[in-house]
Design a protein around this nucleic acid. Structure first.
Lengths: 384, 384
DNA sequence: CTCAATAATTTCCTTCGTCAAGTATTGATT
DNA sequence: AATCAATACTTGACGAAGGAAATTATTGAG
């Protein structure tokens, strides 16, 4: 786990992750939260403080009755260690350096001429060097790199089994990337990485179950149940995009009809908008412009897409009942066009109390994917 | 947990549940399976053997290389303790006595004149007495009773929050039942109980994730993810019946349209079959007879229903990727009419490797619901 | 200035599980 | 038959982890 010690007591890990994700918190509160004695928390916190990962904050103003020794909350020393995160897409590398709390310190990116493995790895090496050799010199305090890749990834081995966009098959990406960068590398599926980031440092903090839905070229979903990421026994999970919501709907590339993605994927929207506007050269951006300008047929395309997404999200809520759901993704640049319809579709199709599940719908800030990748490497620190 | 000891070491519980669910197994195999040293297993097994819960089997024939001391597998002594399980429906109590391995030893049932609480509890008391005073005299070795009720149940407190069929609200069922029967009572939702039974003693054994779908008046689903039952943060989970698969489908009592249940629920099937046959007095059984006799319009109703169920199951597979799915329920008395269409709908809508998820489709044997209730009380023994 | 209340720490102790060595029981080899 | 290798199980010493209870620390209230 940590540089000096190798095997670490369960309580130490628990204390560390709780302080990490649930902010400054006193030892007594930690003990209650974790079901430990306060003595155990004191003991677990000591090595973490000695190693510089935690620090004791000055006593804060009281809340309760007012008497008694004030608590000295434990907090993460976010700049104790830095983490590089890189999202690899077909034509670009997006990289960030994050601190322990997944706060982005610096970002950079690089265009790729082709998804050729050697080219990507060369560029990755250069990108990492650029990030770490920035004026602040993060290199000395950076040991880990997280990579986010779309497709089927085995996190435990760092193997990319299959990535359609990149056209990679059974690529030992961890090994290759470790050789080039000299950092300890973790590889994870991009949606899972993003879900992890939101679960540890975003709106999913503290939630025992949680879902993140990404809207873009495809419609994806990361699922946290019982506090841990759902992986799927056959390597498939979170495929919200291929839930069928209309037996008579448009054909989907998966072979079925009426999948959420066949109605609300970026390609599907463009296709429908072209038909609606009678202009076969329309782009996604054109469609957004038209809809915002009040074009009714094109607006209806977005409405239908939003409704489909809402239905799919309702399926998630009905089945697993997450404590909250975040909807995000590059598709939500056209956020205003979707949101009311996503909510309407969700409310209609959510059953009973499932409709109470809070929905956050918001566009995805730039470099968020890379931040997800960095989060995975923070997790790797804790888990190792 | 066990009669003599109160607090029990984690390893003891682990050994017990593993032997319970994964049959006779040697200490060494247990150690590997649980990630313990064989010494720890030896120590954990001793008190269980002394209390009569486990026994050592005679060495079996060898498998591997052939040399070495043969293993003496540990097995459950199933008749060490008995458990009563009762499923409570609106018009009937179905009761069983099960052994530790959830094997049904005896069964009995009682008609209810009304879902009146006092009446139900009186009948419950008499039913339990009848079951326990049978010739084999289970009473001396029975301490626990499990109750399965449809609706919203808080297992930890034994409170029935709301049961639509029984018209119960906030009923402290555990307390009342304990007073009447003198047994330690566990109350659980019926679908969850059935899922637990299948997970511990049926086709879900050993599966890290698993789903059970019940087909009947409603379409329900129990979900096991990461080894434990999914409960849903807002009290809703497994509502596969209200996933929308056809935006233009028939109206559902939930207020939406095209829910699985609005197409494949028993009521929906009867309604559609009446319309298809042009005979407004048709019953479900009549519809089954007609379909089996080759009536094409009525057959199409079952086909459409099966397909809808298959789509719903595919949504489960796409989202959580269970290791296997069991489809069962009283609706599957007409099993032959559904099965091919369930499979077809599933295959069409399952995405990628999700289609590899094995599906077991079979009718639900009588008293299986009550067995589920008994299973929950077996779990209570282990958890306590 | 004392007391009550709460937070953190210390000391001692129990418990659980590992390690390493030893015992048990078999088939194979000489 | 005697020995050996292989595997299963048991034993006893040990160590790590966490708990209980007493102790110290720090505050506000009377």
């Amino acid at each position: 786990m940590f540089p000096e010690a190798d095997a670490v007591a369960p309580a130490v890990t628990a204390v560390f992750t709780t302080v990490l994700t649930e902010g400054p918190i006193s030892r007594v509160a930690l003990a209650r939260r974790l079901g430990l004695s306060s003595a155990a928390v004191t003991k677990a916190a000591r090595p973490l403080i000695e190693m510089g990962y935690l620090e004791e904050l000055a006593a804060t103003e009281r809340t309760g009755p007012g008497a008694g020794r004030p608590a000295s909350p434990l907090a993460i020393r976010a700049d104790r260690e830095f983490f590089v995160g890189v999202k690899i897409t077909g034509d670009e590398l997006i990289g960030v350096v994050c601190d322990l709390r997944a706060g982005v310190r610096t970002a950079a990116h690089r265009r790729l001429s082709a998804p050729d493995v050697d080219h990507v790895l060369t560029q990755l090496g250069e990108l990492v060097d650029e990030l770490l050799d920035s004026p602040s010199d993060y290199r000395a305090r950076t040991r880990r790199l997280g990579l986010a890749v779309s497709g089927d990834v085995d996190r435990s081995t760092g193997l990319v089994r299959y990535s359609p966009f990149l056209r990679w098959h059974d690529l030992p990406l961890r090994e290759r990337a470790e050789k080039i960068t000299g950092l300890a590398v973790t590889v994870e599926n991009d949606v899972k990485a993003l879900t992890t980031a939101e679960h540890w440092f975003g709106e999913g903090v503290g939630a025992e179950s949680f879902a993140l839905v990404t809207v873009g070229a495809g419609i994806g979903c990361g699922l946290v149940v019982g506090g841990s990421l759902v992986s799927g026994s056959h390597g498939v999970a979170g495929e919200i995009g291929h839930i069928g919501i209309d037996v008579n709907g448009p054909a989907c590339h998966c072979g079925s009809r009426g999948c959420v993605e066949a109605i609300a994927g970026a390609d599907a929207i463009v296709r429908q908008a072209r038909a609606a506007a009678g202009r076969p050269e329309l782009t996604f951006e054109d469609a957004v412009t038209l809809a915002r300008a009040g074009d009714a047929p094109v607006g209806a395309v977005f409405a239908r897409a939003g409704d489909a997404i809402g239905s799919g999200i309702a399926a998630v809520a009905n089945l697993v009942g997450p404590a909250r759901i975040v909807v995000s993704g590059e598709g939500l640049a056209a956020y205003d066009l979707f949101e009311p319809h996503i909510r309407a579709g969700f409310q209609r199709q959510a059953f009973g109390a499932a409709a109470d599940c809070p929905l956050s719908i918001r566009p995805l800030p730039f470099e968020e994917w890379a931040r997800g990748a960095a989060t995975v490497s923070i997790q790797a620190l804790v888990a190792s």
